[in-house]
């Protein structure tokens, strides 16, 4: 990992780490092989007919890279519409295709947690008891079939 000023800043003071008291959606990204996981909490509001991420937080069981990725991705995601957030996830996954799988896993876990939190919100529009969506990564960083759990 190249250590630059931006990386140090995120390691010293991870942005958006913790929970959101008024969250109205959550999603989990999980590495089933080692128990590492990321939870993303969203506060979503409707703005001119669009769902918008007003606030966002994350927690992680993982290494420093996961924390840095969580800090950076949640910073980017705050204020985005759902379409913008989907684009952010897509762009992140595209970048990760060029990274060795073992280095990509942590950032992928964060991107998939964000994706899961959007999915949870959408599902709960029609079923308020819909369980929190969990997306799992695999060893080679290829997303397995999505599944929902009651975590």
């Amino acid at each position: 990992m190249t250590v630059d000023a931006q990386l140090i800043e995120h390691m010293m003071e991870p942005k958006n780490y913790g929970t959101l008291e008024d969250a109205n959606s959550q999603g989990i990204g999980k590495n089933p092989n080692n128990g590492e996981k990321v939870i993303i909490y969203l506060k979503v509001i409707e703005d001119e007919g669009e769902d918008v991420i007003e606030d966002i937080a994350f927690q992680a069981i993982g290494c420093s890279t996961t924390i840095v990725a969580g800090s950076m991705i949640t910073q980017e995601a705050r204020g985005l519409s759902f379409i913008g957030a989907v684009n952010l996830i897509g762009a992140t996954m595209k970048i990760l295709e060029k990274v060795p799988p073992e280095d990509a896993a942590c950032s992928e876990m964060v991107a998939l947690a964000l994706k899961a939190s959007l999915e949870t919100y959408i599902q709960r529009k029609t079923d308020k008891d819909y369980p929190i969506v969990t997306n799992k990564i695999s060893n080679d960083c290829v997303v397995k079939d999505e599944e929902t759990t009651n975590e």
Binding site: P14, Q59, A60, I61
Partner: peptide, 11 residues
Amino acid sequence: ILGVPRSIYKE
């Protein structure tokens, strides 16, 4: 580069 260790999950 001092930083507070992040909080830990109950699991």
